[in-house]
Design a protein around this nucleic acid. Structure first.
Lengths: 207, 207
DNA sequence: TTTCATATCATACAAACGTATGAATGAAAA
DNA sequence: TTTTCATTCATACGTTTGTATGATATGAAA
C-alpha cells in the first residue's frame, strides 16, 4: 500500500468519525466500529491520532473549521445591520445544509460533559461577539429595537440550529401518524422573517 | 433493611439517573456509577428495572411526566392567542427551572440515535399540536400574522429550551475571559418579547 | 539493489462493561 | 415461633472496550 495512502486512511477515519459519532455520540462509537466503517485496521486510530479522543478532536476541528471563515466574512460586510443579520442567518443555514452533522456535534459538546471542548468554545467566542456587535450597531443607528444584545444574539443563533434539527424529527413516522403537520415554508425563509420581525425597531416606538 | 426501603432504592436510582445521565449521557454512565451514586448494590438496577435501559426509561418517564399536565392546562385556557403563547413560554421556563435536566434529556434523545424514544415523541406529539392550534386560532382571529404555524411553533418552542441551556455556557470561565458578555435581562422576559414580536399581526399589514 | 522510515496488519492485554447467580437479610404473615 | 418472600449483597461470567505490541509490507531515498 502506498505511502501517500496514509492520508487516505487518516481522512477516511475522520469521515467515519463524522458519520458515526454525530448520531451515536462519542461514548457510543467504538474504535472498532470506526475502523470498520473506514475500512482500516483496528490499530489505525491509535497510530494516526494517538487515541480515540485524538481522533475526536480532529473530527471536531474539521467540522468547525470552515465555519470560522464564514463568520469572519459577514463580520466586516458594509451593509445595514438588519441585512447583515439576514446574511448571517442564511449563511448559517447554508453551512448547516452542507454540514448537517455540525449541530449534532455542537449540541453534544454543549449538553454532555462539564463544559464544551475548546473548538466549540472558540466558535462561540467568535460568533457571539460578531452577532452582538451587529445588533449593538443596529441599536445605535436606530434600526434595531432596544433590548439585551446578548439574548437577541442567542435567539438569532438558535433558529438555524434548531430549525435544521427539528423538521426531520417531525417528519418521523410516529409523529406523522400522531397527526403532527409538516412545515410548508422553507425553514430558512421563516427563520429570517421570524428573527428580523423581533429585532427591527418600529416607527411608533422611536425614542 | 425494611421492605418499604425498596421504594427508596428504586427512587434513589432514578434520582441518580437524572443526575448522572443528564450530563454524561446514557452510554457515558455505567451501572456501577449509578448504583454508587444511589448508595445501592451493583445488582439493584437489574433487580428493580430489569436492565440499564429499563432504568433509563423510568428516568425519562419521570422527567417528562409532569410536563404533560402543564401543557394540557394551557391548552384550554380561555384567553387571547398571544397571551396563551406568553403563558406557554412562561410555563415552559418555569418547568425548565424546576427540571433543569429535562432539556438535556430531550436534546440527547433528539440528537443521538436513529429517532427519539416514545416518551419524547409523545411529548412532541402533545406539545406541537397545542401550540400550532393556538397559533392557527390567532391567525384566524387576526391577532397573529400569516405564516407557517408549524415553523412558528417550532421557533417558539426553541426559545425556552435554547435560552435555558446557553446562558450557563456563556457564563463559563473561558468565554468570559474571551470577552463574551453576559445577558443582562431575564431570558424569560426576553423570550416572551422576542416571540410575541415575531408572531403578532401589525395593523399596517392587515388584509 | 539495499536501506529506511512510514504505514498496515493480526493479535494480545488489562480494564470496564452489562448482566446473572445464589446466598444472606429482615420485616410481615402464618 | 416459624414461614415466607421481597430485597440486598458479594461475587462471577462473558463481552466489549481502548490501547499496546511486534511482525510485515511498501514506496522513496541511498
Amino acid at each position: 500500500m502506498p505511502k501517500g495512502g496514509a492520508r487516505d486512511t487518516r481522512q477516511r477515519l475522520i469521515d467515519a468519525g463524522r458519520k458515526l459519532i454525530a448520531t451515536r455520540g462519542f461514548k457510543g462509537t467504538s474504535i472498532r466500529a470506526l475502523t470498520e466503517e473506514a475500512g482500516a485496521n483496528l490499530g489505525a486510530v491509535t497510530y494516526h491520532f494517538g487515541s480515540k479522543e485524538g481522533l475526536y478532536q480532529a473530527v471536531l476541528e474539521e467540522v468547525v473549521a470552515p465555519f470560522r471563515n464564514q463568520v469572519l466574512l459577514i463580520k466586516d460586510m458594509p451593509l445595514p445591520s438588519l441585512q447583515r443579520v439576514e446574511y448571517f442567518i442564511r449563511g448559517m443555514f447554508q453551512h448547516l445544509r452542507e454540514n448537517p452533522d455540525m449541530p449534532r456535534f455542537m449540541v453534544q459538546e454543549i449538553v454532555l460533559g462539564d463544559s464544551p471542548g475548546p473548538q466549540i468554545l472558540e466558535i462561540i467566542g467568535l460568533v457571539a461577539p460578531v452577532l452582538i456587535g451587529i445588533i449593538h450597531e443596529g441599536q445605535a443607528s436606530g434600526t434595531i429595537r432596544q433590548g439585551d444584545p446578548v439574548l437577541m444574539a442567542l435567539s438569532t443563533l438558535s433558529q438555524p440550529i434548531y430549525l435544521s434539527i427539528m423538521p426531520p424529527v417531525l417528519a418521523g413516522e410516529e409523529l406523522k401518524k400522531a397527526g403532527v403537520p409538516q412545515p410548508r415554508l422553507s425553514p430558512e425563509d421563516h427563520a429570517v422573517e421570524f428573527v428580523l420581525r423581533s429585532l427591527e425597531a418600529r416607527e411608533e416606538e422611536d425614542e
